[in-house]
């Protein structure tokens, strides 16, 4: 199977600081890939380049064989904070994803908005402003907006980092279900090993800056595609988590 997202000799420096070392990596379509690595290692930069928000210093990134040059709605970003616009209601935040689309009618837009409101359990909060809803709800809004935009690649930069443990767990389960149901390709940046193992089809482990791939772990082969919450208590999950932790200690010389 050929890769959907292809890093081809991609490298990035900010001035004299090398952030990403020449990387070659292919990511499959409809899979959830976690970029795991120490804070500030350059994994976010790598993901931002997929979004067209940063430009590689050398090499390129191909999406479905086409070179990425600028941001467009096929690749949506979800950030840790500032994810939903405070001046728009939940409903209009989601609809914002389609605001600049001319290929669908406004009736279709409302229908899609409705669909994602229901999918994320946000229907009761449709008319609320973001400051009236919880952090978990706000992140749901941000993900829904990206999906409504019609992105088939979701770029998620530690999206659950600021949430409490329980909400975080819930959103992880939801994200995985929706990723499978809606057939999305997700690049998920985190430094949380548990989160990485629970969510990922595949974990790409990065070194300290400048980022380079130190391990490529096929999680789906061990845990399968479905990730119910109970999987966290299985022997396989523990073994995998420990394996990743060891890799991190050995390869990067740091705790994440």
């Amino acid at each position: 199977m050929s890769a959907y997202v292809q890093f081809a000799d991609t490298a990035k420096s900010f001035g004299p600081v090398e952030v990403v070392r020449k990387t070659n990596l292919g990511l499959e379509r409809n899979s959830l890939v976690v970029f795991l690595g120490p804070s500030g290692c350059g994994k976010t930069t790598l993901m931002r380049m997929v979004g067209g928000l940063d430009e590689p210093t050398s090499g390129s990134i191909l999406l479905g064989g086409e070179k990425v040059v600028r941001p467009d709605r096929r690749r949506g970003m979800v950030f840790q904070s500032y994810s939903s616009f405070p001046w728009l209601t939940v409903e209009r935040n989601i609809a914002f994803g389609m605001r600049y689309r001319n290929d669908i009618t406004s009736a279709q837009k409302s229908e899609r908005t409705r669909h994602y409101l229901d999918l994320f359990g946000l229907a009761d909060f449709a008319a609320s402003y973001p400051n009236r809803i919880s952090g978990g709800m706000r992140q749901r809004v941000a993900i829904a907006r990206t999906l409504a935009a019609g992105s088939d690649v979701l770029l998620m930069d530690e999206p659950f980092g600021a949430l409490d443990a329980l909400t975080r767990e819930r959103l992880q389960v939801e994200l995985r279900l929706i990723q499978i149901r809606e057939e999305k390709t997700v690049i998920f940046v985190t430094h949380d090993v548990e989160e990485a193992v629970f969510l990922a089809d595949r974990i790409i482990l990065f070194s300290r800056r400048p980022a380079s791939v130190v391990a490529d772990i096929d999680v789906a082969a061990e845990l399968g595609p479905q990730r119910p919450l109970e999987i966290r208590e299985t022997q396989k999950f523990f073994e995998l988590r420990n394996k990743v932790l060891h890799l991190i200690r050995n390869e990067t010389g740091t705790a994440v």
Binding site: G51, L53, G76, F85, R99, Y100, T146, A149
Partner: peptide, 22 residues
């Protein structure tokens, strides 16, 4: 916030739309 600007750009807003809508 840069994040707001980038969210708008990734859903297809041009510079003028980023200015007026965000």
């Amino acid at each position: 916030p840069q994040e707001f600007v980038e969210v708008a750009r990734t859903v297809g807003a041009n510079s003028r739309q980023v200015m007026t809508d965000v």
